[in-house]
Design a protein around this nucleic acid. Structure first.
Lengths: 141, 141
DNA sequence: TTTCAATTTAGACGTATTCTAAATTCAGAA
DNA sequence: TTCTGAATTTAGAATACGTCTAAATTGAAA
């Protein structure tokens, strides 16, 4: 499964003996419809529009549970941590101007030759981060 | 120029009307001989062995100046910020077990086909992060 | 409806980094 | 060599991000 789905969360939560709460639903709904890899703070702000009392702890707890369950993944834009509801194998483009992070499908990047790295490490996976200026920012110049 | 050199720093500092201090020399010397992408805190610890009163602010100021001058670069191991005295074009391998970050020469990775990304961004560069288990950790298993 | 474990909350805490203002020091000029 | 002023350093305060805690709340099974 590639992208976070509310239904999947409901099923998984109950099958683990956990509980579904309005706060969790709001967090999942926001992530699900988000295509901008929000930060924890952006999630908190969005959820607070529906549930003004939602605390940071709840947002972090939920994000960490979703991450641990493999339903979302973290992406790092420099030292900034963002959350990506797309867990299928993919890479990222980061715009130098607006800092937007966009998904790049794996097929859009030819596979790498990683034959002989120094020290002969066991290679498990790799991630490509492409940097440049996105289409929107080029037009606004 | 590929790797941070003390002489380069001395020249650049004075040509900008800035001053060279023992603390800055110690920071540069440590970075220069370091092959482990130290964190700011590791730099501070190392420098404090020579100059016990060196403050965090001085270390961060110097690291930020070196970074802004293109003499070192930041590398991100997840959300952990490290400093790399090698500014030549290269990629990184991160060991899942010991978190060690190693340089991968550009030649060790065949160049990517980045023909048509969605949104037609202007591509400036890309960085590959390879993850796995380093040789040392494989042997210790 | 009752019950209890899971969850939420506010705020304290820890760590990483930046800011501040006073004291110090480098390096050019006399 | 000494003087001078701007650059630098320092300790500690301030900020930012994330985790932890303990008390209050709540979802959902019986």
């Amino acid at each position: 499964m590639a992208r976070l789905q509310a239904q999947t969360v409901e099923t998984m939560v109950t099958s683990y003996g956990l509980k579904m709460t309005p706060q969790r639903r709001a967090i999942v709904d926001f992530l699900q419809t988000s295509h901008h890899h929000p930060t924890a703070d952006e999630v908190l702000t969005a959820v607070n529009e529906k549930f003004p009392m939602t605390s940071r702890a709840t947002v972090y707890n939920t994000l960490n549970w979703l991450k641990g369950s493999g339903l979302i993944r973290e992406v790092f834009e420099g030292a900034v941590v963002r959350y990506d509801p797309n867990v299928s194998d993919h890479h990222h483009f980061i715009c130098r101007v607006c800092s937007k992070v966009e998904d790049i499908d794996c097929d859009a990047i030819g596979s790498l030759q990683l034959c002989s790295l120094p020290g002969n490490p066991k290679i498990e996976n790799y991630q490509v981060i492409v940097r440049g200026v996105c289409g929107d920012c080029q037009r606004q110049k």
